[in-house]
Computed example of a mutant assay.
Amino acid sequence: MAPTEDKPKFSYRASPQLSANQMAEYLSPSTSSTRRTGIIRDARFPKKSIVAQYGMGREGLVNFLGDGTRSYGHLADAVVALEKREAKPGASTWMKRDSRGSIEAIEAFQRHYNKLGFSKLDCRPVHGRQPLLDLWPTRISVSLDFTIHRQPVGGKKAVGGAVLLFSKGETSTNARLERSKIIAGLLHTYAGRFLECMGDADPTLCFAVDVFGGIAHKPPGSFVKKLRNVADACDEIAARWRTVRPPSGYDGPEPD
């Protein structure tokens, strides 16, 4: 087996594909044309070595919400594990920072829990690989953290889902708000595309959760119009995909 340092640091994606977060940033009016090119570059030539931040914090929150008893023991156990990880001899600066940030995220969520409105919702963790939203030339990965279910009395089941967003620096900005609503709209679109076997897709059950800000954003009422903007952006990204060159230091496969 080749040493880790000899392995390529980049991979290559032949077909246009963005994450919901990347698409939301691409569509933001505050995003410059240079940054939009950078978003396409990051998606076409993704780094292999990126470790997801707040991973253990996310896991603790999903375990808590997915437990019908909503035992705070899940959150307490996650905090204890993170404190041990933070204090571990030889822990890197990144690991210490990520552990502390995850603890703060869990504490923020617990403070805002009642306001967020999840106490009466049926939340279920998502397992396995999730399909890509494939309605446009550029596919979008939504990556739900959990699905949300409701059984109205005498009515048909309703379904939605949520993504937990961890960002401390800009929770109150207009750009952050706009991006969160776009993500929530993509969640609703995803539910209508892939979760209808569980019930009718319900926009009131689709949330982009600003963990630090304590806000669960729903799709805006005008999202049908914004969905046209998503479609236009997907066309534009697909047209530009092969024209965007690799980043400096690229060592992945030769692009088409």
Score class of each variant (00 low, 15 high):
173 T>V: 00
76 A>I: 05
98 D>Y: 06
107 E>W: 09
139 R>H: 12
168 K>M: 06
240 R>N: 09
174 N>T: 08
244 V>E: 04
184 A>F: 01
116 L>C: 03
177 L>T: 09
134 D>I: 03
39 I>C: 03
159 V>A: 07
253 P>A: 15
183 I>G: 00
30 S>G: 11
55 G>I: 01
136 W>K: 08
174 N>G: 14
154 G>L: 03
39 I>V: 10
170 E>L: 07
206 C>G: 01
81 A>M: 11
199 G>H: 08
70 R>G: 12
84 K>R: 13
107 E>K: 15
174 N>E: 12
214 G>P: 00
197 C>S: 11
39 I>R: 04
222 S>W: 11
166 F>Y: 09
136 W>L: 13
177 L>C: 12
51 V>S: 12
191 A>C: 14
80 V>I: 12
219 P>W: 12
108 A>Q: 07
150 R>V: 05
249 G>V: 07
85 R>M: 15
109 F>C: 10
120 K>Y: 08
106 I>E: 09
254 E>C: 06
110 Q>T: 08
83 E>C: 03
212 F>I: 10
256 D>K: 05
122 D>K: 09
224 V>T: 12
84 K>G: 13
167 S>G: 08
226 K>R: 14
224 V>L: 13
206 C>Q: 02
128 G>M: 12
11 S>N: 05
213 G>V: 02
151 Q>A: 10
11 S>R: 06
165 L>Y: 08
76 A>N: 01
182 I>K: 02
62 V>W: 08
1 M>K: 08
174 N>F: 14
153 V>K: 11
19 S>P: 00
155 G>F: 09
89 P>F: 03
236 E>F: 07
83 E>S: 07
151 Q>Y: 09
25 E>P: 00
7 K>S: 10
46 P>T: 09
36 R>E: 01
27 L>N: 03
243 T>L: 14
250 Y>I: 06
126 V>P: 05
253 P>R: 15
131 P>W: 12
148 I>W: 06
68 G>L: 14
218 K>Y: 05
245 R>G: 09
104 E>P: 02
80 V>Y: 10
205 L>E: 13
203 P>Q: 10
48 K>I: 12
19 S>W: 00
152 P>L: 14
